[in-house]
Each structure stands twice: as structure tokens, then as C-alpha cells.
Amino acid sequence: MLTLAFDTATAVATSALVDTGSSGHLEVLGERCSRAQTLLEDVDALLRQAGAHPSDLDRLAVGLGPGSFTGVRIGLAAARGLALSLDLPGSGVSTLAALAAGAPRAVPVIDAKRREVFTLLDGEPRVLAPQELPFDEGAVCVGDGAKRYRSLLEEHGAVVPPDDDERHLPRARFHASLAGEPGPVDDLEPLYLRVPDAERNVS
């Protein structure tokens, strides 16, 4: 089973082509990262490397955010286009969950702009100020939010790996491994976690 996985919610977009054997074992055939606008260049390269054709794909695993609204939409719009054209099912995976899966026991922290971050609280995605992040002394924080608020987090006793540590990226291989039963891709919704400003001002 050939799974194409990608996540465009953060500044670095990730993608992976993963083969799932009958035993449930995952084999990563290739991984790439660039940015949301050039996601399909990565996807194209992954398939060419593996000698695969788009019609060989069996399913999609897509990052739903939270993260950049525009970034998340680019990934989901691409997923919807692929699913429509190739008649593929897909699963949505939280970008925070993928980040956490790539760094066991670490706190996933995604930059939410406006001096806030997205994180998981008791397994639920939340948006809060970086100084409100609850963690134990010595806890590892990963993600672009952890990089951005490194000094603040370190002051509070957190450990933030070096900027180029790959644990800061929501790597798409984890989307493939976390993906549940695939369904219609048109039913997948972004995890925005914030209503548009205009909506808030009206109500």
C-alpha cells in the first residue's frame, strides 16, 4: 500500500512516500522538505525517485494543522485535487501529533504568530501564550514555536534542541504511521483553532 503523506502547516513543508506492507510494517521510500507553494515539486520528485506513477498511489495522509492558515489550505487543496483526480481516500493527521510522534516525551510547540503558540494539552490542540506553556523542568520542547521562543522557554527550564534538529519538523513519515482509517478527502477539515478576526468583531 503506497501512502503519500505531507504537511504544509509550518514554514517548512514536509512530504514522504511510504509503503505499508501487509504485516503493517512501514517502509519510508523517500522524504523531502521545502515549502507549501512547492509541495508538488517534492511530491513529483518522491514518486520519480521511487519509480512510481501518481496512479500507483493508494491513499493520502495529510497534516491538518494547526499552523499557518494559508499553508494548511495549500496542503488540503492539493490533497483534494489529488483525491478528485486519482480517486484516493485519505486521513487527516494533526500537525502537533506528528511533531509529538517524532520526538517522544517532548512538548510540541508550533508558532501561532501574534505572540502565541499551538500545543497539545492533555492530547487536545490549544492556542496559548508561550509563557503559559506547562512543562516540567528539563522537558524538551520541539517545533518552530519552540525555536522562536527558545530563550523564553530555556529561561523556564525547558530544553530546546539546536535549530537544525529534525525533531523541530512535523515529518510526514509520522503522518503516514499515525493515519487512521482513510475516508473521503473532501471531508477533512483544517484545524484552524482560531476564528477569523472579522468573525470575532461581528459577534
Binding site: L40, V43, A77, R80, L82, L84, S85, L86
Partner: peptide, 10 residues
Amino acid sequence: AAAKAVAWSR
């Protein structure tokens, strides 16, 4: 993004 995806896949 949707247009690229449809075009690329075919």
C-alpha cells in the same frame, strides 16, 4: 494548489 494537483496527477 488544487489545479496543480489535478494537472500533475494526469
